[in-house]
């Protein structure tokens, strides 16, 4: 799939490399800005309260 992307980028090798770099940075930015903040609370590191809504259940 990376080969397919590379072949469909315009320009010579330098231009393609530059565009690839921009694409990679855009993906990393989107991950850090939107995807990871959404995914992180699904992991258990944030369960620090005793409200019974997580873990063993019960409570309120």
């Amino acid at each position: 799939m990376y080969g397919w992307i590379w072949r469909h980028l315009p320009g010579n090798a330098w231009v393609r490399a530059l565009i690839s770099l921009v694409l990679v940075l855009a993906v990393v930015y989107a991950l850090f800005q939107y995807v990871f903040p959404w995914a992180e609370p699904l992991l258990p590191f944030g369960d620090v309260t005793v409200d019974g809504s997580t873990g063993t259940g019960g409570g309120q």
Partner: peptide
């Protein structure tokens, strides 16, 4: 150390 449902601790 207790379980998450132990709301008596607060």
């Amino acid at each position: 150390r207790t379980v998450p449902s132990d709301i008596g601790v607060i």
